[in-house]
């Protein structure tokens, strides 16, 4: 066990855990931030996507010991009150079915639009293909990303 100081959603947090513990479980089990989801544990489904200094990262493959001073943002910290353009677009397009994968989809989409505010269809597909949606909301996700892109660039 070891003590780690972390910057999460703009706040300082301390946890005393096994250094190999993936951030996914630090967030879920130790910090009560359960919006970040467990789907596979092997970086194949994207449900655990968070931002590390603003870039989409699979938290199931991110040991707490390597985070250091880098800032982590989870779905709970993406906006104050669902007012991030990607969240707004998700609500407008009514994307979710079961909803379990959507936090990861949203975090990945927000990261994509930050680096590429006007992605083409192919760029959206390529960037989002690591995020599984078992319910099959892919066409709505794409629509919502385009909606958010339009609003960001308006």
């Amino acid at each position: 066990m070891a003590l780690f100081k972390l910057k999460i959603n703009g706040k300082s947090q301390e946890v005393d855990v096994d250094p190999k513990t993936p951030m996914l479980w630090v967030l879920r089990d130790h910090l009560n931030l359960v919006g970040t989801k467990y789907g596979c544990g092997v970086a194949q489904c994207g449900a655990c996507t968070v931002h590390l200094n603003g870039s989409a990262t699979r938290s199931c493959q991110l040991p707490v010991s390597v985070v250091g001073d880098n800032e982590i943002t989870t779905i709970e910290g993406l906006s104050e009150d669902a007012d991030h353009p990607v969240q707004q677009a998700w609500l407008k397009i009514d994307v979710p079915q079961c909803g379990y994968c959507q936090a990861g989809q949203i975090m990945n989409a927000a990261s994509l639009l930050k680096s590429n505010p006007k992605p083409s269809d192919e760029e959206i597909e390529a960037a989002m293909s690591g995020n599984l949606c078992r319910c099959g909301t892919y066409t709505r996700i794409k629509k919502a990303i385009k909606e958010a892109s339009n609003n960001i660039n308006a």
């Binding site: 089990d29 009560n32 931030l33 359960v34 919006g35 970040t36 989801k37 467990y38 989870t74 779905i75 709970e76 993406l78 906006s79 009150d81 669902a82 969240q87 998700w90 609500l91 009514d94 979710p96 909803g99 379990y100 959507q102 936090a103 949203i106």
Partner: peptide, 27 residues
Amino acid sequence: KKNVEGKKIVTGKPLFGLDFQKEGMKL
């Protein structure tokens, strides 16, 4: 009509069984 839990879903609120926690609970 929009999904009544839409906002909770997109903000990562604890909705699912895996998110459920209770004082004194073991895993």
